[in-house]
Amino acid sequence: MDLALLRTFVTVHRAGSFTRAAALLGLSQPAVTAQIRTLERQLGRPLFLRQARGVTPTGIGDELAHKAAPHLDALVEIAETGLDEESSLRTLHLAGPPEFTAERALPALAELAGDDGQGFALRASFGNAEEVLEGLAAGHHDLAITTARPRGALLTATALCDEEHVLIAAPRWAARIGPGKLRRKGAPVLKDCPVVEVHESLPLVARYWASVFDCLPSTSGTVIVPDLRAVLSCATAGAGLAVLPRYLCADAVARGDVVALHEPAVPPLRTYFLAVRTGTLAMPHISRAHDWLLRAASGWG
């Protein structure tokens, strides 16, 4: 069986679209379609069901992808790193949310990269859960850190850690709200307070309100900035309330730059997952980084 046809097939399977696969492969969409049809004729079975938006693999298509993809990935790895036995350095491509990746994952992996000739070169990129999982499935990344557990058998995910969320504000806002008032009266106390968030939908604030106050926030974002570190800076400057991971704001709380407004008995948690393409943990550099992150995460409070 032609490996080029298999490579095109796996790319279509991961991308879910002939058009997206063509862009990833640097081919025209008709060329991709022709290659898939050739492979289907050779196998005597349809591999995809064509739909208005993209394609869905058939049962045999899924089975072939799960068997072939790990071996194709291994061949690509060999091609990228060369056959020189003296060259043991591999490149690990990591993707995840910017704040968690920068503050947690990269410092941990930096200890491992290049270590005693057994490590790896490290390349990192940032994105939201959908972006990093799509990139992982398409073969752009080796490891993905995400808050969404991937579905299906193409990707394998392991729970990495939980992060606790904290409602914080600058001291002047804390003084205006008053000590104990929020605990006694709940969310209505905060209805006139401005909010700093990463998106107009207020994902962290809405999750906190639903978990702690059993309601949705009645305010809109005053400052929207797509990085939690910038959210902390704005909250510290007095722009409004914010919900942040405890690890990200713990030092600012300790210094008194911001105040934790509420300490619920059961704090809201968000789970991070470490995802790989199924079968790629057979590659030593990916397996080593995967295990190292899991061990490091056991010490993250």
Rank of each mutant, 00 (worst) to 15 (best):
58 T>C: 08
124 A>W: 07
7 R>M: 05
80 E>P: 02
227 D>Q: 12
228 L>S: 08
38 T>L: 14
284 P>D: 09
7 R>W: 15
57 P>Q: 10
17 S>C: 05
143 L>D: 00
119 G>F: 02
276 V>R: 00
158 T>H: 10
279 G>Y: 00
42 Q>M: 12
262 H>T: 04
204 L>W: 07
141 H>R: 07
86 E>S: 15
172 R>C: 09
96 G>L: 02
117 G>M: 09
41 R>N: 15
180 G>F: 05
279 G>H: 02
300 W>K: 06
92 L>Y: 02
182 L>V: 11
24 L>Y: 12
36 I>R: 00
45 R>N: 14
62 D>N: 06
157 A>D: 06
97 P>T: 12
40 E>R: 05
75 L>D: 11
280 T>W: 00
25 L>A: 09
82 G>C: 08
197 E>H: 03
299 G>E: 08
154 L>S: 15
5 L>P: 00
17 S>K: 05
218 S>R: 10
270 R>A: 09
10 V>F: 01
21 A>I: 00
257 D>V: 02
115 D>A: 15
105 A>E: 03
288 R>G: 05
25 L>Y: 08
172 R>N: 13
114 G>F: 10
115 D>S: 10
125 S>L: 10
114 G>Q: 10
17 S>Y: 04
285 H>D: 01
196 V>S: 03
65 A>G: 04
78 I>R: 14
114 G>S: 07
82 G>S: 10
209 W>R: 05
247 Y>L: 15
204 L>R: 04
293 L>Y: 02
118 Q>R: 15
200 E>W: 09
270 R>Y: 11
15 A>V: 02
187 A>S: 14
81 T>G: 05
74 A>M: 12
107 P>K: 01
176 R>D: 14
161 C>S: 09
122 L>G: 01
11 T>D: 01
244 L>Q: 03
64 L>W: 03
253 V>W: 04
268 P>L: 03
99 E>R: 10
150 P>R: 00
89 L>E: 13
249 C>K: 00
28 S>L: 09
224 I>K: 06
212 V>E: 01
279 G>M: 01
288 R>D: 09
290 H>L: 01
268 P>Q: 03
1 M>T: 07
284 P>K: 12
112 L>M: 13
168 I>K: 00
275 A>R: 02
89 L>W: 12
131 E>S: 12
124 A>S: 14
31 A>R: 04
99 E>D: 13
159 A>M: 14
25 L>F: 09
147 T>Y: 13
56 T>P: 10
157 A>M: 06
163 E>D: 11
198 V>E: 06
189 V>T: 01
42 Q>S: 12
242 A>M: 07
241 L>H: 01
205 V>E: 05
233 S>M: 03
176 R>G: 11
160 L>N: 07
265 A>T: 15
262 H>P: 08
171 P>M: 10
113 A>Y: 00
189 V>G: 02
108 A>E: 05
107 P>W: 04
20 R>L: 14
101 T>W: 05
176 R>E: 15
257 D>L: 06
275 A>D: 01
152 G>E: 02
134 E>M: 06
33 T>Y: 14
131 E>K: 07
149 R>E: 11
291 D>H: 14
83 L>V: 13
203 P>I: 07
292 W>C: 07
263 E>M: 13
271 T>C: 05
40 E>H: 06
54 G>T: 06
157 A>L: 06
263 E>R: 15
151 R>F: 09
250 A>D: 09
54 G>W: 03
